[in-house]
Structures are given as C-alpha cells and as structure tokens.
C-alpha cells in the first residue's frame, strides 16, 4: 500500500490545483483507492503527482476513481419498503416535500425515489434536488440510461418494493416497468421516462467544502454510503450541516450500515439507517 507520506503528498498535489480536498477522507480507504489507481494506470506515485499537476482532465479522472460510485435501483429493498409504508404516508397532507439526494452518483437512487413518490401520488408535490462531486456522474444521472444486463437483477428489487406488499402477501399490484422506464434489450439499455428525467434539479456539490446550496430546508435527505469514506471529523461536520438543513421531523437516510457516532446523534431518533430529526 502507498505510504501515509506518499498519500499526503497526493492529497496536497490535488489541493494545490483544484478545490478538491481529500485531507479528511478516511485515510485507509483513500490509500486503497490510490493503490487501485496506480495499478490501473500502471504509474508510480511520482508520475501520478506530476500528471495531476499538469493535466486537468486527468485530475478529474483521478477524482472520479477515488470516489466510489456504487448505486443500484432500490438498493436495500427493506429501506424502500419502510419509506413506502411508514415514512412517506406521513407527507400526504403536506403541500410540498423537499428531498435532497447528496452524493447521488449515477442517479439510480434518485429514480427509485421518483418512482416510489409517483406510486404514492406524491410526485407532483415533491421538489427533488440531487448533487454529486462529479460532473460526469451528474450527466449520467440526468441521462437516466443504464446498462440492462448489469441492472436486471435490480428489477427484482422493483418488484419487491413496488408490486408486492410484505405486510399482506395477497396485496399485489401489477405495475408495468414501461410506466417508468423502457427496456431495450437489443442495445442493452434501461431508459428512464422523460417525466422522471426532467423532474430533479441536478447541481455539482462537494460535501467537503460546500454548505447547502439550495434556498430551502429539506424533509428528507439521502446520503447513503458516502460518509463511510470520510474520517470522523469530516463526518461530524457534514452531519451537522444536514441536521441544520432538515425540517423538524425530517429524515436523514444513511446507508444500511452507517451510523452517526458524534454528538450530532443527539438530534436524531434512529431506526436502522434512518434518522428522524427530533422535534425539540
């Protein structure tokens, strides 16, 4: 593995030519990503640094490789089932629902939520914002096109969340995929319908540097499996920012195996990866 000293040099090089600051990323996970990059590009640490310093496009590519971009349609069906039956129904009487997907990557989670909102007749009152560090990922999210073969397993998740009711096995709803996306097997594509694609506001946003860039607070903030790559200090800073930008009784949704460790945990009531902001 690259040494801590080498890794610090890389962080400093990136910082000197961009606004990206990886100083408070989880040290081990940052070094593992660097190892992978050195291997993939067949480079030495010195070569990596000198290319970062002179080649902007390469730098963006490196940043994209450092950040982990895993996302799936309806990842963790249990979460979506909880949203469907226990959380979203509470918003039926609201005039609007403000939702922020922070670290949305290529957008599968955004589309999952849009589909669920639509099924629950909450689509029109939802204001949906999605951000990521990476502009290329944002473009993918906006495009809403995914590889069919790679994603077909996740259609089971769609069935579980949208068609079935785990609390009542006889309650089955026949929802055609075509209501929300077209499947083009010939071109190996899943293509989201335009009414879903056009709904969210996408913006570039860096959780390390930026505060809330929207002129609104939120009812639900998603930030799943993003802060696991941060150290505790940065985690706390980001979680404080989320907490102060949530309405009372709003929800912060982290990954299934992430937890809030710092004092900001006191602002929330927790059920698994779902944190509800206390109303006092």
């Amino acid at each position: 593995m690259v040494s801590l000293e080498e890794s610090n040099k890389i962080v400093a090089a990136i910082k000197s030519v961009s606004t990206y600051d990886f100083s408070d990323y989880s040290e081990k996970s940052f070094r593992r990503r660097i190892d992978k990059i050195l291997e993939d590009f067949r480079m030495s640490v010195d070569e990596l640094i000198s290319r970062i310093l002179r080649d902007k496009d390469f730098l963006e590519q490196v940043v994209r490789e450092i950040t982990v971009n895993t996302t799936e349609l309806f990842r963790d069906p249990e979460l979506w089932i909880t949203l469907k039956y226990r959380i979203l129904p509470r918003f039926q009487q609201n005039k609007s629902i403000f939702i922020w997907h922070a670290g949305c990557s290529s957008g599968q989670e955004v589309y999952s939520m849009l589909i669920l909102l639509h099924e629950l007749d909450l689509f029109d009152k939802a204001k949906v914002f999605a951000t990521d560090l990476n502009t290329e990922m944002l473009e993918k999210a906006k495009q809403g096109e995914y590889r069919y073969r790679f994603n077909m397993n996740y259609l089971d998740n769609f069935d579980k969340v949208i068609k079935e009711n785990p609390y009542n096995y006889e309650d089955k709803k026949d929802v055609a995929y075509e209501k929300y996306f077209d499947i083009d097997k010939k071109h190996d594509l899943i293509i989201m319908k335009p009414f879903l694609r056009n709904k969210p506001v996408y913006r570039k946003h860096d959780l390390v540097n930026d505060k809330n860039i929207f002129y609104s607070k939120f009812d639900i903030i998603f930030c799943r499996n993003v802060i696991i790559y941060f150290n505790t200090k940065l985690q706390n800073k980001v979680l404080e920012m989320f907490s102060s930008n949530l309405y009372r009784d709003g929800y912060l949704i982290l990954g299934a195996h992430e937890s809030i460790l710092g004092p900001v945990a006191n602002n929330f009531e927790r059920t698994k990866g779902i944190y509800k902001k206390k109303s006092y």
Partner: peptide, 21 residues
C-alpha cells in the same frame, strides 16, 4: 460481513465498510 459491503479490519481495532466495486 454485511451483505453488499466489503468489510475491512483496520488498525485501532475497528471496522471499515465500503461499497467499492
């Protein structure tokens, strides 16, 4: 190890999880 995560055992006797490929 939780489903769909990599589980690392880190110095300082703690876990770290990741969703890397």
């Amino acid at each position: 190890a939780p489903a769909n995560y990599h589980m690392y055992i880190e110095l300082g006797n703690k876990f770290s999880l990741s969703t890397e490929e």
